[in-house]
Protein backbone atom coordinates (compact mmCIF):
# COMPACT_ATOMS: atom_id res chain seq x y z
CA UNK A 1 0.00 0.00 0.00
CA UNK A 2 1.25 3.47 -0.88
CA UNK A 3 0.60 5.90 1.93
CA UNK A 4 2.31 8.93 0.46
CA UNK A 5 0.52 12.25 0.94
CA UNK A 6 -2.28 13.23 -1.40
CA UNK A 7 -1.59 15.91 -4.00
CA UNK A 8 -2.10 19.47 -2.94
CA UNK A 9 -5.28 21.31 -3.79
CA UNK A 10 -3.34 23.39 -6.27
CA UNK A 11 -2.09 20.31 -8.10
CA UNK A 12 -5.48 18.71 -8.32
CA UNK A 13 -7.34 21.83 -9.31
CA UNK A 14 -5.06 22.51 -12.24
CA UNK A 15 -5.54 18.95 -13.45
CA UNK A 16 -9.31 19.27 -13.17
CA UNK A 17 -9.25 22.39 -15.29
CA UNK A 18 -9.54 25.15 -12.69
CA UNK A 19 -10.59 25.96 -9.18
CA UNK A 20 -14.23 25.27 -8.44
CA UNK A 21 -15.89 27.99 -6.46
CA UNK A 22 -19.41 27.79 -5.13
CA UNK A 23 -21.31 31.05 -5.42
CA UNK A 24 -24.79 30.19 -4.23
CA UNK A 25 -25.33 30.78 -0.51
CA UNK A 26 -27.77 28.95 1.71
CA UNK A 27 -28.91 29.95 5.17
CA UNK A 28 -29.03 26.89 7.42
CA UNK A 29 -31.86 26.67 9.95
CA UNK A 30 -32.31 23.87 12.44
CA UNK A 31 -33.93 22.93 15.73
CA UNK A 32 -33.22 20.36 18.40
CA UNK A 33 -36.64 19.97 19.99
CA UNK A 34 -40.17 19.83 18.66
CA UNK A 35 -41.25 22.62 20.99
CA UNK A 36 -38.61 25.08 19.78
CA UNK A 37 -38.62 27.06 16.54
CA UNK A 38 -36.13 26.71 13.72
CA UNK A 39 -33.24 29.12 14.17
CA UNK A 40 -30.31 30.08 12.03
CA UNK A 41 -27.19 28.02 12.70
CA UNK A 42 -25.01 29.25 9.84
CA UNK A 43 -24.42 29.55 6.11
CA UNK A 44 -23.02 27.22 3.47
CA UNK A 45 -21.89 27.87 -0.10
CA UNK A 46 -22.95 25.29 -2.68
CA UNK A 47 -24.16 25.70 -6.23
CA UNK A 48 -25.90 22.33 -6.06
CA UNK A 49 -28.73 21.92 -3.51
CA UNK A 50 -27.71 18.32 -2.78
CA UNK A 51 -24.19 19.49 -1.98
CA UNK A 52 -25.72 22.18 0.19
CA UNK A 53 -27.52 19.46 2.14
CA UNK A 54 -24.31 17.44 2.53
CA UNK A 55 -22.30 20.47 3.63
CA UNK A 56 -24.94 21.61 6.12
CA UNK A 57 -25.17 18.13 7.64
CA UNK A 58 -21.42 17.71 7.94
CA UNK A 59 -20.50 21.23 9.07
CA UNK A 60 -23.29 21.80 11.60
CA UNK A 61 -23.29 18.37 13.21
CA UNK A 62 -22.66 19.54 16.75
CA UNK A 63 -26.17 18.61 17.92
CA UNK A 64 -28.63 15.77 17.21
CA UNK A 65 -31.00 18.01 15.25
CA UNK A 66 -34.56 16.87 14.65
CA UNK A 67 -34.96 19.21 11.67
CA UNK A 68 -32.65 21.17 9.39
CA UNK A 69 -33.58 23.19 6.32
CA UNK A 70 -31.77 25.30 3.74
CA UNK A 71 -33.07 28.65 2.54
CA UNK A 72 -31.49 30.18 -0.57
CA UNK A 73 -30.09 33.51 0.56
CA UNK A 74 -31.14 35.18 -2.70
CA UNK A 75 -34.80 34.46 -1.96
CA UNK A 76 -34.77 36.44 1.28
CA UNK A 77 -36.72 39.68 0.96
CA UNK A 78 -35.48 42.42 3.29
CA UNK A 79 -38.12 44.27 5.27
CA UNK A 80 -35.82 46.49 7.29
CA UNK A 81 -32.38 46.67 5.76
CA UNK A 82 -29.40 46.96 8.08
Amino acid sequence: MNTSPAPTAKQQSSEAGGWIEDRKLWEVYARRKYDEPLYQVGTVAADDPDLGRVYARTIFNEFPWIEMVLIPRDTIIPVIEA
Binding site: A16, G17, I20, D47, D48, D50, L51
Partner: peptide, 25 residues
Protein backbone atom coordinates in the same frame (compact mmCIF):
# COMPACT_ATOMS: atom_id res chain seq x y z
CA UNK B 1 -27.27 8.46 2.27
CA UNK B 2 -25.19 11.59 2.58
CA UNK B 3 -22.19 9.94 0.90
CA UNK B 4 -24.35 9.10 -2.10
CA UNK B 5 -25.64 12.65 -2.30
CA UNK B 6 -22.07 13.95 -2.18
CA UNK B 7 -20.80 11.60 -4.88
CA UNK B 8 -23.76 12.13 -7.19
CA UNK B 9 -23.73 15.90 -6.85
CA UNK B 10 -19.97 16.13 -7.46
CA UNK B 11 -20.21 13.90 -10.55
CA UNK B 12 -22.84 16.24 -11.94
CA UNK B 13 -20.79 19.25 -10.89
CA UNK B 14 -17.52 18.16 -12.48
CA UNK B 15 -19.29 16.96 -15.61
CA UNK B 16 -20.61 20.46 -16.22
CA UNK B 17 -17.59 22.46 -15.02
CA UNK B 18 -15.84 22.55 -18.38
CA UNK B 19 -14.16 20.19 -20.83
CA UNK B 20 -11.10 19.66 -18.61
CA UNK B 21 -13.14 18.65 -15.59
CA UNK B 22 -15.39 16.42 -17.66
CA UNK B 23 -12.41 14.63 -19.18
CA UNK B 24 -10.68 14.25 -15.81
CA UNK B 25 -13.84 12.83 -14.25
Amino acid sequence: GIHWLHGKAWVQRLATAGAGSHRSL
